[in-house]
Amino acid sequence: MSGRKIMAIAWPAFLGACLLELLVFALVDPQDVHLPGQPSGWSRQAVYTTAFFAFWVVCMASSALTALLEVPPAEVDRPAKR
């Protein structure tokens, strides 16, 4: 996969993760995040960082699926070069 294609997936995903981070933490205080039945005990910065990377991974999966679906069928069905 070319560097250009990787950046075409990673950059929009990064921007999407930034937007999600802003929207979610405008409404949720990181200190209110609880694991099942108990407080997480994580610092605010740890919650922000973990959430950002989780959002980024989800957005990258979405962008990668879009990149996969835009490949023309003729290119997918073409025999591999040897």
Rank of each mutant, 00 (worst) to 15 (best):
L35F: 06
F55M: 14
H34W: 01
T50F: 04
F52G: 01
T66S: 13
E70L: 05
G16K: 15
T50S: 02
A8Q: 15
L27G: 04
E21W: 12
Q45D: 09
C59F: 01
G3I: 08
F53W: 08
L69W: 14
A13Y: 00
P79L: 08
E21G: 10
Y48L: 03
T66I: 15
L68C: 13
R82N: 05
C18P: 02
A67V: 07
P12M: 14
T66V: 15
L35A: 10
A17D: 07
P12C: 15
A8H: 09
K81D: 03
A13S: 12
A8L: 07
R78T: 03
Q38D: 14
C18H: 12
W56V: 07
I6N: 13
H34E: 03
V47L: 05
K5P: 06
G37Q: 10
F55R: 06
D77R: 13
A46R: 04
S63H: 08
L15G: 05
I9R: 00
M7S: 06
G37S: 07
D29V: 11
L68Y: 08
Q45I: 02
P36W: 11
H34Y: 02
W56K: 01
Q45G: 09
P30S: 11
W56A: 02
P30L: 08
Y48S: 06
A61L: 09
A67Y: 00
S63W: 01
G3V: 13
K5M: 12
A64T: 03
P30M: 11
K81P: 12
L27F: 09
P79N: 08
L27T: 06
C59Q: 09
H34A: 15
C59H: 02
V71W: 10
L20H: 01
F14G: 02
V47S: 02
D32T: 07
P36S: 15
P72M: 12
L22V: 04
F52A: 04
V47C: 02
M1K: 12
R78W: 12
D32G: 02
P79S: 11
W11S: 15
E70D: 05
W11K: 12
V76N: 00
R78C: 07
P36D: 09
S43N: 09
C18T: 03
R44Q: 10
W42P: 04
V58Q: 01
L19T: 15
S43T: 14
A46L: 07
S63M: 05
